[in-house]
């Protein structure tokens, strides 16, 4: 993350995203597949690390092997195999949704994981249970813990969508987007942009 200044001189926190160029490697049609979608490929990959079936897949679109393949539905413009999709789809002032995998937090308690308030005071006889979850439910009925009870456990590493982030800048030559605010995931991770 970094920050840029708006026209009014406000300091806006932002994230830099390298968006594209992506290559269309497959076109799904209603006749063929029952739904319409476009498969985009991004980021170079070594040929020796590519399996033979995938090499054939990329050869069909007459492109080099790529690391990430994602299908997108609802493209406005018709796309053909081998077409390049680049950052100029976006313009400044647009709002986008960003989908990514959040950073793994490991095994976390209920206060961090589910926003429990913890045990309030240090008084009233309380000691050593400041961040405890409390009761899991009633006793003889139902004689079980309900499914989905919020407890401690693994946190993070989930698919997260952040909605309505404003595009502050577009640099077409560098394929860069500057998006306001933070986005899911670690530095260098892959995300999906939806407009």
């Amino acid at each position: 993350m970094t920050s840029v200044y708006s026209a009014e001189g406000k300091n806006i926190p932002c994230t830099v995203i390298e968006a594209g160029p992506c290559v269309v490697t497959q076109v799904r049609t209603v006749d063929n597949d029952g739904y319409a979608a476009v498969q985009l490929a991004y980021d170079e990959k070594k040929e020796k690390n590519t399996s033979k079936p995938m090499k054939g897949h990329f050869a069909k679109a007459s492109t080099t092997p790529k690391r990430k393949l994602v299908e997108f539905k609802g493209f406005e413009a018709e796309k053909n195999l081998g077409d390049v999709v680049s950052v100029d789809l976006f313009s400044e002032g647009d709002f986008v949704d960003v989908v990514g995998t959040s950073k793994g937090k490991g095994f976390q308690g209920v206060v961090k994981r589910h926003g429990f308030a913890g045990v309030g005071g240090q008084t009233h006889g309380q000691h050593n249970r400041l961040r405890a979850p409390g009761s899991l439910g009633a006793s003889s009925w139902p004689s079980k813990v309900f499914k989905g009870m919020r407890m401690a456990g693994r946190m993070g590493g989930d698919r997260v969508k952040i909605q309505n982030l404003e595009i502050l800048k577009v640099y077409p030559e560098q394929n860069l987007l500057v998006v306001s605010g933070s986005i899911p995931g670690a530095k260098g991770s892959y995300v999906i942009l939806e407009k």
Binding site: I17, E18, G20, L40, L89, K187, G188, V191, I192
Partner: peptide, 27 residues
Amino acid sequence: QSDFYGIKIVVISKKMDLVKFVNDQVT
């Protein structure tokens, strides 16, 4: 209007030297 649902997407990565490029654009 299907226009609204039109999704245009690109797959991306975040890298540090890209941040440097954007910082250099600030006057």
